[in-house]
């Protein structure tokens, strides 16, 4: 694979035009485009650190309950559909790929390609949300909504028995598992909900970038916002990379 190195400075007067803010993409507070680039990159990474801690809080809580209620969580996760989870992981990884290519196209000022890749990314994100909708409504139908309609393991235990007889047996023996399983679904909705919200924000922001690229089709554009949104999108992907095995897979099948 060959990586190209290129001076992407949009500054027509070279790198060090002090005080000469004739580059339309250069913020007033910056001296040159390189400083602006570095600043945005570091800023975005600091934001990512913040996101890591934000998700980290709920991950830590989940980890502790996974440790405390090992058995219940291992039973409860069987109600999650590995197929849809895998599809969604696939979709998100692929969208990360199209995002990366979109950012690359933006750097090369290949406007059409950028718009195409971004639309693909949005499409994948929508597929992800669609799958989430299917999964959520299945949970709703099965009575797996903590706090409001958590009846699968009490009123509809026979449904469980068909697929996972050992779970039904365990719950019958030990009804105390039910609130613990409720807690699992509490975490499931809290974590995937929070993640889904990030996907939704991603769709909106990427959509805005598509419109921006569309309107300014023939002008050279500052690719920094594109790259920042790219970083955000990959972060959303990373969160899912951890969520998927921890929620859907760990605990045996």
């Amino acid at each position: 694979m060959s990586n190209t190195t290129q001076d992407l400075s949009l500054d027509p007067h070279g790198a060090h035009g002090h005080g000469a803010h004739d580059n339309p993409h250069l913020g007033e507070q910056f001296e040159d485009i390189a400083q602006q680039y570095d600043t945005y990159t570091v800023g975005m990474w600091a934001f990512i650190v913040q996101e890591v801690m934000f998700f980290g809080g709920v991950f830590a809580a989940y980890a502790i309950y996974r440790y405390k209620y090992l058995e219940a969580f291992s039973y409860a996760h069987l109600e999650l559909d590995v197929f849809w989870g895998t599809v969604n992981t696939f979709v998100l990884l692929f969208s990360s790929f199209t995002m990366a290519l979109g950012v690359r196209a933006a750097m090369l000022q290949a406007r059409k390609a950028q718009i195409g890749f971004f639309l693909a990314t949005i499409l994948f994100a929508c597929v992800f949300m669609g799958v989430k909708y299917v999964e959520y409504s299945a949970k709703f139908d099965h009575g797996l909504i903590p706090g409001h309609n958590f009846t699968l393991y009490t009123e509809h235990l026979n449904e469980v028995r068909e697929k996972h007889p050992h779970v039904a047996e365990a719950v019958e023996k030990n009804p105390a598992l039910v609130p613990q399983m409720e807690l699992f679904f509490g975490f499931y909705f809290a974590m995937t909900g929070l993640h889904g919200l990030h996907v939704l924000i991603g769709i909106i922001v990427i959509g805005a970038l598509v419109i921006r690229a569309w309107i300014n089709k023939n002008k050279p554009l500052d690719y920094m916002p594109v790259e920042m949104v790219g970083l955000y999108w990959h972060l959303v992907d990373i969160v899912w990379i951890f969520l998927f095995p921890l929620l859907y897979l760990v605990g045996g099948h």
Binding site: A170, K173, N174, P175, A176, L177
Partner: peptide, 20 residues
Amino acid sequence: ILNPAAKIVKGYDNLMPAYQ
């Protein structure tokens, strides 16, 4: 007492109802 199944003594079955 509240949740007997949580820690079953070796050699016994989980028979006791929960008193939660």
